[in-house]
Design a binder for these strands. Structure first.
Length: 430
RNA sequence: GUGAGCGUAGCUCAGCGGGUAGAGCGCUGGACUGUGGCUCCAGUGGUCGAGGGUUCGAAUCCCUUCGCUCACCCCA
């Protein structure tokens, strides 16, 4: 038996409805704020990710799905979304459109990693980029759109963790400072951090090992070396967040893994999953477009991990999705063809219908409707057919009455399903 | 890349001091010929992850391998 490749998943019904609903919500909210969807390739030239994400990052270092095509070109399955959007922006000269441009995307990303809870080799991200706006207003708008999205999904308790990473010269200076600070205490650091001290001292700041954390808390932060410009920029973002009542928390040890970030960086963690489970990460990347050979235009954006988001979706949203009323239409005897006609009529009126085409007995059909937690069953037998009615049964109460076909849509209007059926997880477990 | 745990029916698992593969749930049907949920009955379902070894005989003991999961690193 052939199994799915490691790190991929089958998203089965009814779970797939949640994914659809999350994506529909994203389209609606993002578009309401003036963003438009961009679809870019799932794979790009390897060089794009090496140059944008950064050569020293783990993503490029050891997590890319890189392969040579038949002509020997090096291609890579995209590990994140921003690089492709930036490339498409430049390639299609979108800087000649009215700026800023708000672009959003959703789709699969790929990273070659060992499997773990909430971590996949193929996972989905929903992201937004605002290109061509240097103002802190753009950073704040990003977070505003993000939180309106969360709000529409029913989240109540999410908090943004926010930091200033400074401008590029500041980052270099901070690296120096941190090396000077940590080197005398190197013996106290974990072995990973001793390595980080050489390669990327910023990463020591968010190590989870207690002894490292203790040191990190006393280490100099970006504030010590950041220029006035970046400080003022992030302070203004904070001011706007307060004004908008978006809950945030300044975290001076927050460091993001991608090299292109400057100034504002942020992430949102799932409260019930502990501090390491990031469901959204983002920040400002003012140098990225220029580094890719384009005009010197700023950008800011975020990406939400859809897999993790679906995992922690509030009950309210799940219930709304699974509670959608559907009519189960059961034909008896020779009424099957008429049932299909009736189903077409109802669907055109906006009523979702399942026709029982299994040819089973009424008893079996009712049993099935009950298993599916359907509320309404319409029985169409010879007698009903002759009178152009159905027997409409309400499975919640067991009540049943005859309803003419023309009034069926109206009789069902506003009806909710019964409590959602319990279902299996995501198909990712075996 | 490092460390740990686990692989028996579609799902959750029992069986492991070697002796003919089990239960619950699910699915299908029946008891109840056009009326669900509860109950009862029947049916359906498995190269015991794979390969090798020990043995008269292995799901069970030994070795190898593959797969899955969790943690670390890092991230969505």
């Amino acid at each position: 038996m052939i199994q799915r490749p490691r790190g991929t998943r089958d998203i089965l019904p009814p779970e797939s409805r949640l994914w659809h609903a999350v994506e529909a919500t994203a389209h609606r909210v993002f578009q309401a704020f003036g963003a438009e969807e961009i679809r870019t390739p799932t794979f790009e030239h390897t060089e794009l990710f090496v140059r944008s994400v950064g050569e020293t990052t783990d993503i490029v270092h050891k997590e890319m799905y890189t392969f040579a095509d038949r002509k020997g070109r090096s291609l890579t399955l995209r590990p994140e979304g921003t690089a492709g959007v930036a490339r498409a922006f430049l390639e299609n000269a979108l800087q000649d459109r009215p700026l800023p441009l708000r672009l959003y995307y959703m789709g699969p990303m790929f990273r070659y990693e060992r499997m773990q809870k909430g971590r996949f080799r193929e996972f989905r991200q929903i992201g937004l980029e605002i290109l061509g706006a240097a103002s802190p207003l753009a950073d704040a708008e990003c977070l505003l759109v993000l939180f309106e999205f969360f709000q529409a999904l029913g989240f109540q308790d999410l908090v943004v963790h926010l930091n200033n990473l400074g401008d590029p010269p500041d980052r270099a200076a901070l690296g120096h400072c941190l090396r000077e600070f940590f080197t005398p205490h190197a013996a106290q650091l974990c072995s990973d951090c001793q390595r980080r001290l050489e390669e990327n001292p910023l990463r020591v700041l968010d190590c989870k090992v207690p002894s490292c954390q203790e040191l990190a808390h006393r280490a100099p932060t970006v504030e010590a070396v950041a220029g006035e410009a970046s400080k003022a920029h992030v302070a203004e973002v904070e001011e706007l967040l307060r004004r908008l009542d978006i809950p945030y928390q300044r975290n001076p040890r927050l460091v993001r893994g991608l090299d292109y970030y400057v100034r504002t960086v942020f992430e949102v963690v799932a409260p019930q999953w502990g501090p390491s489970t990031v469901i959204c990460g983002g920040g400002r990347y003012d140098r990225l477009l220029a580094d890719l050979g384009g005009p010197d235009l700023p950008g800011v954006g975020f990406a939400v991990g859809e897999d993790r988001l679906v995992e922690i979706l509030p009950e309210s949203f799940r219930n709304a999705v699974f509670g959608e009323a559907r009519l189960q239409l059961v034909p008896l005897g020779g009424a099957s063809a008429a049932a299909l006609e009736l189903a077409r009529k109802l669907v055109r009126q906006g009523v979702p219908v399942d026709v029982e085409v299994g040819g089973r007995s009424l008893k079996a059909a009712l049993k099935r409707a009950d298993k599916l937690r359907r509320r309404w069953v319409a029985i169409l037998g010879e007698e009903e057919l002759a009178q152009r009615v159905v027997s409409l049964r309400d499975l919640t109460e067991g009540a049943q009455r005859l309803v003419p076909w023309e009034q069926l849509a109206q009789a069902l209007a506003g009806g909710q399903n019964r409590e959602p059926a319990r279902h299996q997880g995501t198909g990712s477990q075996h």
